[in-house]
């Protein structure tokens, strides 16, 4: 609608001349935001009167009751209640935590039980192996060194580790910040030294180690398994100025065995 016509309509309304149809038009214009309630004189005045209407104030009883309620709620909040325990917003995170704990418990319990009998269904055995592998790989990601140690020891229960598992163990050996976890990884890798790839990676790992304990453990393993290709790497450690004298002696002994 043109501005001119809107103005005329407002004037008619303000002069008490607006018909029912025109009032309907005003409503449409109000809804569309084309006119404002303040432009309608009577309506604006009446709205102002409503706004200035004074009502009595609440008595002190309201304050007493409110502060009593608040004190009670504070008391309830600070003490345990079954009702609160089972109220959904409180219960939901507890239930979620309990479920996760239960699942982890069942998973670990399942993995810790004695290995399945030889005549067990091969499909089931396969599933168990896959499950162990999955748990082991996820435990290796944990921040806690104890969890990672648990992961490494899980491989001992595996009849044949996949390349994924040996890869994860080698990764742990090369990059885990905890010496104990790295030592456990060396132990866990022992059964797979026949695998050329694992053997080569172990030899490469010697140079990457900065812990004397891990260096000695690797040297002893190389000697025990007669991995002659490791001599070069071991000699580098012996020649390094940063290697402690005791470690040099132990590694030299391993080299002697290998030569």
């Amino acid at each position: 609608m043109e501005k001119e016509k809107i103005r005329e309509l407002i004037n008619r309304y303000n002069s008490q001349l607006a018909t029912t149809a025109e009032i309907k038009q005003i409503e449409t214009l109000l809804e569309a935001g084309s006119i404002d309630l303040d432009e309608l004189k009577d309506i604006h005045a009446l709205e102002g009167q409503v706004a200035s209407m004074e009502f009595p104030s609440p008595t002190g009883n309201l304050d007493d009751r409110f502060y009593q309620m608040l004190a009670l709620e504070r008391k309830v909040k600070s003490s345990f209640s079954w009702r609160g325990f089972f109220s959904w917003p409180e219960l939901a995170p507890k239930l979620a935590l309990a479920s996760v704990t239960l699942l982890i418990g069942v998973g670990i319990g399942y993995l810790m039980k004695p290995s399945a009998p030889a005549n067990a269904d091969p499909g089931v055995n396969q599933q168990i192996a896959e499950l162990k592998e999955m748990v082991m790989l996820s435990l290796l990601e944990k921040e806690s060194a104890a969890e990672r140690l648990k992961a490494v020891s899980l491989t001992e229960q595996m009849s044949a580790a996949s390349t994924k598992v040996t890869g994860a163990l080698l990764e742990t050996l090369n990059h885990d910040e905890n010496v104990n976890v790295r030592l456990a990884a060396i132990e866990a890798l022992k059964p797979y030294v026949r695998d050329n790839h694992v053997r080569e990676e172990l030899v490469r790992s010697i140079a990457r180690q900065d812990s004397p304990l891990v260096q000695v453990a690797l040297a002893e393993m190389m000697a025990a398994l007669h991995v002659k290709s490791s001599v070069k790497e071991l000699e580098k450690i012996v020649q390094s100025d940063q290697t402690p004298a005791d470690v040099k002696t132990r590694i030299k002994q391993s080299i002697d065995i290998l030569i």
């Binding site: 809804e31 309630l37 709205e47």
Partner: peptide
């Protein structure tokens, strides 16, 4: 706005 108008 329409509701307020009608009420007033």
């Amino acid at each position: 706005k329409v509701k307020v108008f009608r009420a007033l």
